[in-house]
């Protein structure tokens, strides 16, 4: 293996690490728009990894997969989510995070667990970037943690998508991608899923709106409290001299 591909391999590991870093960013980020940005960034990392693996292994179909990811997950889905956030007037609102340090420690445990599980398998793999498996698994588990620690529906959607990114990272780095038909099918499923969720969010908002007229809080109202929130007290900003 020449120097160039060694660097390529290390770059893949690095990018996988960045992807995990972004997964943690998603876990701790409160602002919804920033969540979408992080997701788009994570997808972009996935695009780079996919094309890099395609370049290193000479498998052409990975370029196609990268292009698909680029269009779908870097552009289309974030744009859809942004529109959703704008339509629901959630640009300035924050998600609540309870017990962040505890969540973080839990995330840490998940990472340890994932690495521990993946280590023996990574050593077996003949694929070019076997260490990535553990990082991808950790990313999936962190996404799962985000899913269960968030109360806002849109954060849950992003958590779902982040988990999906983790699966694709694993698929790309460990097996050089799935067969093309399967990848296409998965992409279509994901797109439809996001569209459905987008429609749901609108209706949940309607449900919550009609609910605010009177009556006790229902599961849906808790699921997606809509409209402009009461502004939170601004963070204390010190005066500049």
């Amino acid at each position: 293996m020449n120097d160039l591909s060694t660097v390529g391999l290390q770059l893949i590991d690095l990018l996988a690490a960045v992807s995990l870093l972004l997964a943690f960013g998603l876990l701790i980020q409160r602002r919804l728009t920033a969540l979408i940005d992080f997701y788009a960034l994570q997808s972009l990392v996935l695009v780079i990894v996919t094309s890099l693996v395609g370049w290193l292994t000479g498998q052409r179909h990975l370029y196609l997969s990268a292009a698909l990811t680029m269009v779908l997950k870097v552009l289309l889905i974030p744009i859809l989510l942004y529109r959703l956030v704008r339509r629901l007037r959630l640009e300035t609102s924050h998600d609540t995070l309870v017990k962040l340090p505890a969540t973080l420690l839990l995330g840490l445990l998940l990472v340890i667990f994932a690495f521990d599980v993946a280590r023996p398998i990574a050593q077996l793999s003949t694929a070019i970037a076997s260490g990535t498996l553990g990082i991808a698994l950790a990313g999936i588990l962190v996404g799962f943690l985000m899913m269960i620690s968030r109360s806002r529906a849109i954060s849950q959607v992003i958590a779902f998508l982040a988990m999906e990114n983790g699966v694709f990272l694993a698929a790309t780095a460990v097996t050089h991608g799935m067969p093309m038909v399967v990848e296409l099918g998965i992409a279509v499923d994901v797109l439809i899923g996001v569209l459905i969720l987008g429609v749901f969010l609108f209706h949940l908002q309607d449900a919550a709106d009609s609910l605010e007229a009177g009556g006790p809080a229902s599961p849906t109202a808790r699921l997606e409290r809509s409209g402009p929130e009461t502004p939170k007290p601004r963070k204390a900003r010190t005066q500049t001299p």
């Binding site: 988990m163 699966v167 459905i196 449900a207 229902s218």
Partner: peptide, 23 residues
């Protein structure tokens, strides 16, 4: 509301599950 909440729960739980299956 109840239908949407049920469908949401269905999607999120099964979505997470099915991603594990994909992995």
């Amino acid at each position: 509301q109840a239908a949407l909440a049920a469908a949401w729960k269905y999607f999120i739980l099964c979505g997470v599950g099915i991603l594990q299956a994909l992995f």
